[in-house]
């Protein structure tokens, strides 16, 4: 198996600042300074909260387009995506395709596994330290 670890859990929220404040206040979990921000190309803003070796990624949609906005409109707030860290994204995509999984082409170190290959779980692969 080539997965290094659980990289992060993606959590869709309606108000990023409110969610960060809640998790800090209730659970003592603090956002990592300097990570995240607005990503206009994806129509989101995000922040990462480290918990041990993994992160929680809080994601707020900035508009009405895209998968995050659709999730928020249909289901409200909640767990959205599981992200697994890999060493070599291109090699991992090929490995999974060889196993029979449908996987999108890597883009900027990220690739998504088709939900048809996971019974509906939104699964992302990510390569850090590129």
């Amino acid at each position: 198996m080539s997965f290094k670890k659980i990289d992060h859990i993606g959590i869709v929220v309606k108000d990023l600042d409110a969610a960060l404040a809640t998790y800090d206040h209730n659970l003592g979990l603090k956002a990592a300074p300097g990570r995240g921000g607005e990503v206009p190309a994806l129509g989101i803003k995000n922040a990462f909260v480290p918990v041990g070796e993994s992160d929680l990624e809080f994601i707020q949609p900035l508009g009405t387009e895209g998968p995050v906005a659709t999730f928020a409109a249909e289901r409200g707030e909640g767990t959205f995506m599981l992200s697994l860290e890999v060493d070599d994204i291109e090699a991992e995509v090929e490995r999974l395709r060889g196993l029979g999984a449908r996987v999108g082409n890597p883009n900027n170190g990220v690739a998504f596994v088709s939900m048809k290959s996971t019974h509906g779980v939104n699964l992302q692969l990510v390569q850090r330290n590129r």
Binding site: M1, S54, L96, L99, T118, H119, V121
Partner: peptide, 24 residues
Amino acid sequence: HIDHIVISSNDSAATASLFAENLG
């Protein structure tokens, strides 16, 4: 740390088997 993450399914054996087969 995060101790465990839960994936719920109407057939957890089938989903675990799919993750084993498709994702290794």
